[in-house]
Design a protein around this nucleic acid. Sequence first.
DNA 1: CGTGTACTTGAGAATTGTCAAAGGCTGTGG
DNA 2: CCACAGCCTTTGACAATTCTCAAGTACACG
Lengths: 238, 238
Amino acid sequence: MEFSQDCRQCPHGLCIHRVPLFSSLSRENLLHIAGLIQHKGYDKGQRLISEGQEMGALYIINAGRAKAFRYTPEGREQILYLFSPGDFFGEQYLFSDHSAAYHVEALTPVLVCFLQKAHLQNLLLAEPQVAVKLVAELGKRIARLENTFQSIGIRSVDARIATLLLDFSDQFGEPTAQGIIIKLPVSREGMANYLGVARETLSRKLRKLERANLIRSLDTKTLLLLDRPSLASLAGLF
Amino acid sequence: MEFSQDCRQCPHGLCIHRVPLFSSLSRENLLHIAGLIQHKGYDKGQRLISEGQEMGALYIINAGRAKAFRYTPEGREQILYLFSPGDFFGEQYLFSDHSAAYHVEALTPVLVCFLQKAHLQNLLLAEPQVAVKLVAELGKRIARLENTFQSIGIRSVDARIATLLLDFSDQFGEPTAQGIIIKLPVSREGMANYLGVARETLSRKLRKLERANLIRSLDTKTLLLLDRPSLASLAGLF
DNA sequence: CGTGTACTTGAGAATTGTCAAAGGCTGTGG
DNA sequence: CCACAGCCTTTGACAATTCTCAAGTACACG
């Protein structure tokens, strides 16, 4: 785990460049903010934040992946988000003193930039455009949550799995000659927890999709998507 | 259906007073905004907006109740939100030109105030505090969605029903000597759609709760909540 | 007072969860 | 390079839950 005082020595250039939030800022403003940003590295499996903890900053994923999750009363892990570089979280707590409502854990080694609450608050008041951008980003996130919400409301587990595969294909997929290759960010168990079904059920369903030639499992963490249209119709039409 | 040019003749006083969003504004600012706000009334069952429609304004519920919903691929109605006076929607579309992702329909006669996109955009740029408030409100909504998300992820339908009843009791309940009286905003079918289960399942579960003396059904649209603690333990512990 | 709508209840079918065991991959140590 | 331990995944069989279809009941409204 390492720190660096600000973002100007960012290993990947100014990390805030990666954040759509700040895209409207001038170069000098960017540099100023960059000076306020702190870094921290986390190993795979480490907690970035824990449920119940104070959230004093906005977290921006600079490199790596992380998952946000809670435990259900039965003790199962329910995954809420998968974060990739450029994603941020903690914005809910900017203007409320609630504590974090979920755990965030590194799925791979992760590098985060964080911006203290107070600094961001000042920034929003001084630069309305950033606030407007933030509102827009939050709107997007709400829309995504609403979609997920609905897709869970769908009775059929098959449809939910198809939806998840399509989402993954958009987020993590790479088109090739044979089909879209998806590097899964989580294990089967993780996917099951994301969907809210039992591991075993997910296994069976995936096998069924494989037998129907819609997908092929290359290895545990790699999937080949063969028939996107059929998946789409599963997700949406039945 | 009636119009009125601005909000100064609002039947319930300045409707924007009801909106936390604008609570930080000075009296003169409020009056200015009030002048920009338009009204519209809807009968029960009428659509405020339809899926796919352009969203040109922020809608604020002034009186009455409305539901936001979509149709699942199977043709079932999936309720996303229940709006009460003071709630607003349409903010997702402020800075995106996406069309509405759901229908909104009046459950009772409804009076809405709406503020055109352009006016609100100007307001946000001119009054950063309003933007900050908006960010805070959106944060709250995200938190609520995340909660709902998780509670749906919970396998047990019983837990979800208990959670819904507790939510309703908070939102629509009135404490009395016998217990908390809940005026249900939706029919059994509506509740079932909200939870994503079959009508019949909901009926059976409610009957079971009634036999266990946790609730009593006074009439179709009124519920008496007798044993909140037991419900809470159902919702959270098993 | 009848009619229609919404709700309840019952029985069988389908789906999913649970438990148990077997299979497969990975990394360590010989 | 191989053997083995440990973990994740798959598969099978059974139990539990929920859905569907069908019929019956209650209630609101004209």
